[in-house]
């Protein structure tokens, strides 16, 4: 999500993290993964050469949704699940702005599931950062739509029964044009993925594995802990065969059913590996890749799963307005009112 008009003048004063930091005290629990996401975004902003007044952060309800208060930009802390709808209003009204949606697994995928999928399929120009901690934090620890089956929480003392969503699979199934995953333990990776998401024209979806150290501590340790990353994180690089492992000894290939599977490179040979292509218009392969992130712990793709070009919703809205004005001239209220059968009484 970007717009050329938001780039600062070449001779403008260079901005710093401070210019994007509000005067409000950050109130997340000590040790929360949200801090590192906030830092990543605040550090990235000056690098993007954009103006704070042209940024609008829209959030719903949940711990992560306090995020806009900490950004020195325009912001709306809206209501539970509705951020993509409110952000759509901002984006359709003002294509000149950069619109960011901050949401969580409960906010985006449970109460706000409908707005989430429709913002993606419409391709509204916005960057959606989904803080996935697989738990309800603000309401103190109930299972979420991404929690693993059998999770024991206050609301599921005998284990949760609900089968979880895979957020990236859901996004791809919702016709998203940009889908990526990152995690809160790697600030550089986050910044790079956020930068790509911001550059994308259209709805850009980023799932962030985010640790809730109070209610779901270590949920992603199995894949994001430093000593696990080599064998558990599958770094996606466009145009390259998908490989991972301490010695790059593993890879991903598509089997006869079109499913992505983990293979030993020594056994199948490098030529058999899937070469990652972010720009494949058909979503099937990206979907297959997204399925690799099986719960509770399996090798998990990180980075950009899908990035394709499709006209943004608001640009098409604008095109229709322009075309109508060219065809019929600007609207004239009196002519409109007097259209159709009229008569005069004298």
């Amino acid at each position: 999500m970007s717009d050329a008009s938001n780039q600062s003048d070449a001779n403008a004063v260079t901005l710093t993290r401070k210019d994007f930091t509000s005067d409000q005290e950050v109130r997340w629990c000590p040790g929360c993964g949200d801090y590192s996401v906030l830092t990543a975004v605040q550090l990235l902003m000056p690098e993007l050469n954009i103006k704070p007044e042209n940024q609008v952060f829209v959030s719903g309800i949940g711990c992560a949704s306090r995020f806009p208060y900490y950004m020195n930009t325009y912001g709306i802390h809206s209501i539970h699940g509705r951020a993509p709808a409110v952000a759509t209003g901002v984006a359709v009204a003002r294509p000149d702005l950069d619109v960011w949606v901050i949401t969580g697994d409960g906010d985006a995928l449970s109460i706000g599931g409908n707005h989430f999928i429709h913002a993606l399929r419409r391709n509204v120009n916005m960057t959606i950062l989904l803080f996935n901690n697989q738990i309800y934090g603000l309401t103190k620890g109930q299972y979420s739509p991404t929690s693993e089956v059998g999770k024991v929480t206050k609301s599921s003392p005998f284990g949760s029964l609900d089968y979880p969503f895979n957020p990236c699979s859901l996004a791809i199934g919702s016709e998203a044009t940009f889908v990526a995953r990152t995690h809160d333990m790697d600030r550089k990776h986050m910044q790079e993925v956020f930068r790509r998401a911001h550059e994308h024209r259209g709805a850009a979806f980023v799932e962030i594995y985010q640790n809730c150290n109070v209610f779901n501590d270590g949920a992603f340790d199995g894949v994001t802990a430093k000593d696990k990353r080599a064998e558990m994180l599958i770094e996606l690089r466009h145009g390259e065969p998908i490989r991972f492992g301490a010695e790059n000894e593993f890879g991903v290939r598509l089997n006869q059913f079109g499913e992505a599977e983990i293979v030993s490179v020594a056994e199948v040979g490098e030529a058999a590996l899937l070469v990652h292509d972010e720009h494949r218009y058909d979503p099937s392969t990206a979907f297959a890749l997204s399925r690799l992130a099986e719960q509770p712990v399996s090798p998990t793709p990180m980075g950009v799963l899908r990035a394709i070009d499709r006209p943004t919703y608001e640009s098409q809205v604008q095109d229709q307005l322009t075309a109508a004005q060219e065809r019929r001239g600007p609207g004239h209220l009196r002519e409109l009112i007097e259209s159709g059968a009229v008569w005069d009484v004298v």
Partner: peptide
């Protein structure tokens, strides 16, 4: 929600 977002944006 869209109407509110539009209002915020002017």
């Amino acid at each position: 929600g869209i109407a509110i977002g539009g209002a915020f944006a002017g």
